[in-house]
Amino acid sequence: MNKTKVTKKTGKKILRFGVLVVLIVLLYVLGLAGLFSTNAMRILLNIALYVTLGTMWNLMSGFTGMTSLGQQAFIGIAGYTLCVITSTYNLPFWIGIVLGGLFSAILALLMSMVLFRMRGMYFAIATWVTAEALKTFFTSWKFVKMGAGMSVKARPYPGVSLIYVIALSLSIIAILVVYSLLKSKTGLGLNAMRDDADAASSVGVNIFRSRLLCFVVSGFFTGIAGAIFYLNRGSIFPSGGFGTEWTVAIVFIVIIGGIGTIEGPILGAIIYVALSEYLSKYPGYSMIILGFIAIVVIVALPYGIAGTIERKLNLTVFSTRRTLEG
């Protein structure tokens, strides 16, 4: 390999890394210094949460080939855990968030025992049915006040800037976890598995273990993001916490942004939150328009925005592709 070419490439990498670090530091500093308006903070907070949710769905569907339509199962479980911990047991909210993530991870573990026997569409259906079953169960479970919903109790209630910082940190950790997971040996196996599960299995990729790892990681982070969302929202109902709307949003974000890329969910989350903010002026039409956009993108841009840029301009910030020079 030509030496100057290598240094040029490394230089470009360092530049991109630098820009990224500056951006992240700015997002923290501006948030903590109170330079964002409450509204701006709320929007950025939502973007950060959707980045996490999208990244975790992408880990499953885009990199592992397990399309889940039931991520709301984790969001609802974690949201309810937060409410039960803070209002039934009067414990601090951060315990609720952590336990919410843990319960989601445990749910993922339990689901995997049944769901991992299925492939493709069956898996997608089963995740969705699980979420619907949980919604029905929570609607008639007395302990969580049935359909009446529950609220988060915290004294003093965390302000939006604190929740924003937590959400921002979560999204950065989520991206780093997925990125390093994909860069690891397990990641190579995951990609092989997505492209051809039988071939991957025959050359020694432990499909079950790799899938389980992704599913549990995805469940954990999706749960944490859900708990933070409901910490900001203040109350949860079975219809919302386990609502199909979550999957709609997540699928939209990853498809628009670009499935199977790290940048995709980030771009998609920004577009989704911006669009829903703009479309909130037209209640009723927003979901219809989002649905149309999603269909047009699936038909016209099969790789999403990030995927198309990557293919046309060969530009990536986080490349998970393996090249000879490393």
């Binding site: 399309t67 339509l69 569409m121 997608a124 709609v248 699928v251 498809i255 979901m287 219809i288 989002l290 649905g291 149309f292 999603a294 269909i295 699936i298 038909v299």
Partner: peptide, 11 residues
């Protein structure tokens, strides 16, 4: 195609 039918259901 699966995701497009999902979009249709929302619409």
């Amino acid at each position: 195609a699966l995701l497009v039918t999902f979009g249709l259901s929302i619409i």
